[in-house]
């Protein structure tokens, strides 16, 4: 059974998630924001677990860069 990265909308409450994400960054300096995001990525990655899904997610995230870096 191959798990696939969910790329169709899947949020239960998209606006609430987004608000919570912004709230978590409130009052942080730039280094703290980076650190928080890094920890958050690791927490979420562990929850997903599946290596193929994680690699697909990295590819999607890289491909969406507006500065078109590789």
């Amino acid at each position: 059974m191959l798990s696939q990265l969910q790329t169709a909308p899947n949020f239960e409450k998209a606006d609430d998630f987004y608000a919570a994400l912004l709230a978590a960054h409130e009052g942080l300096d730039e280094a703290q924001m980076h650190a928080l995001n890094a920890r958050l990525i690791l927490v979420l990655a562990n929850h997903i677990g599946d290596q193929a899904v994680l690699e697909a997610a990295i590819t999607v995230a890289k491909g969406a860069s507006t500065t078109r870096q590789m």
Partner: peptide
């Protein structure tokens, strides 16, 4: 450095980070 430190920050409180 960012992710190394993130792993070390987490591992004190969260067992899931140990394998990293």
């Amino acid at each position: 450095t960012l992710f190394r430190d993130a792993v070390l920050d987490l591992v004190e409180h969260q067992d899931f980070a140990r394998p990293l």
